[in-house]
Write a protein that binds this DNA or RNA. Structure first.
Lengths: 262, 262
DNA sequence: CGGACTATTGATTTGCGTCAAAGATTGTGG
DNA sequence: CCACAATCTTTGACGCAAATCAATAGTCCG
């Protein structure tokens, strides 16, 4: 019994870590040894119920959070209580990887659905990074993708109207969900309109009206936690979406390995 | 004559690189050797006239741009021609350091004033990072500060009204300009109201009106490229500014060295 | 001195927020 | 498995912060 349980747990760990390795290898070149080192990272799985904050802003955290299943939002909260979501994290994302080098200024993490998180001790990540420079580089690169997405969010919130903001977000998530399977025209995205508003800086009411417009223009369907894109061309046009910032560095020519020899 | 010229140039190089090393050492611990390695980076100084783009989005760049003097804006341009500034870079900043690991998705660089840029070949930076893991770590950490600022910009543009956005920006720049001299209540910030608008996502007209309000409230003076903060407490309150995300990791307790031994 | 930005101010419009209330869905305990 | 509560979605009426349009003053620089 106990043995079975143990193997179920270790299977779950391996699956989650494998997702992460796959994610890293979309943009970085890692040897079999290096992959194995990441896969062997110690991790403690925890289950977080929907609507729970599980990493709190400003708290000194000794772990990174690898999302194994579910959807999480990274956010900053203002004194007024209103939140700005600054990223969505999907399975395979190490949501707060940057805390390895900089524990401050990342904001909190909120479970938008029930979520399985693999908690990986900072110490372990640091020691793998120290032993394998190419892994450290892959971590760094992963953080910079996150930053590139963030830059787009500034543009999105700063320069686009309501429909375009939503369109851009749906395009982003489509590419990210499909990164190792090609672009997806349908994907689960279990967020409320309130939460969409927290991400694109609109009220829930206006999100509702804008979604209605997008539906009437036959660009998307959205409901029951699922997005279906009916007209990718028009949607990207409306959202002024150019996938380059997400995928250009996954092209074989672009994959680089700078540190840790050849 | 030639010798004099050469020494003037090499002095200028050294000064610029020294700024960068000082910047890194505010948050990272580097040995004398490591500092020297960064200081010895090859760099070619170029002068960029005001209002010139000197790094273009999507261009494959083989250099990083260390700002030695002047003020630069990082931006993304929409098809309509409107721009969103996503960061201001001041002397000592390696504006596009992230291109070392990820050449895409950083946007362009625009000289807001006449600027001296030290162009440092990617190759040289990579080789220093490969030889000294602690330097690579310092680079990574520097990039994550940039990302933390970016997160604040999302919040700023998404969740604050015009006066608060400007207030927050003035607070950010005050801390950043004064990072090794303590917080500054007056600093040069030679941007037009148009450019302020491109940064905080407002029109120039509305920036003008909002600045007028801030002046009338006696919070700041602004004009001829200089910002004077009269009431720091009120300004931070209005902008909901908390400097933690900028400076917490410069506290001695927080400074870390993870890679490259002790 | 003249031409080109840059700042300032006014009048008007508009996209989005706010307030409110009625449906639709989801989840939960009996 | 149903009932009822809680949450989420949808729609309407109205208000407001910021955009837009437009015109006049500075200000900088060759």
């Amino acid at each position: 019994m106990l043995k079975d349980e143990t193997s179920v747990v270790s299977r779950r760990l391996h699956d989650g870590l494998q997702l992460f390795v796959t994610r890293l290898m979309a943009r970085s070149i890692l040897t079999a040894d290096e992959q194995q080192a990441v896969l062997s990272l110690p991790a403690r799985p925890i289950t977080v119920r929907a609507k729970q904050d599980f990493v709190h802003e400003g708290e000194d955290n000794a772990h990174c959070s690898l999302i194994a299943s579910g959807l999480v939002g990274r956010f900053r909260q203002l004194r007024s209580g209103t939140r700005q979501i600054t990223a969505f994290h999907i399975p395979g994302d190490m949501a707060d990887l940057s805390s390895i080098v900089r524990p401050v200024g990342i904001g909190g993490l909120h479970a938008l659905t029930e979520v399985t998180v693999l908690r990986v001790p900072h110490e372990a990540i640091r020691s793998v990074a120290a032993r394998y420079p190419a892994v450290a580089e892959a971590f760094w690169r992963d953080c910079m993708l996150d930053a590139a997405i963030l830059m787009q969010w500034v543009v999105n919130v700063g320069r686009r109207d309501a429909r375009a903001r939503l369109a851009h977000l749906f395009c982003e998530m489509s590419i990210r969900y499909g990164i190792d399977r090609g672009m997806l025209t349908a994907y689960d995205f279990p967020v409320t309109q309130e939460q969409l508003g927290e991400a694109v800086a609109l009220t829930a009411v206006h999100v509702n009206r804008s979604l209605k417009a997008l539906r009437e223009e036959k660009l998307i369907s959205i409901g029951s936690g699922r997005v279906i894109i009916h007209d990718w061309d028009q949607l990207t046009k409306l959202g002024a979406f150019d996938s380059g910032y997400l995928i250009d560095d996954t092209l074989p020519v672009r994959k680089k390995r700078l540190l840790g020899g050849e």
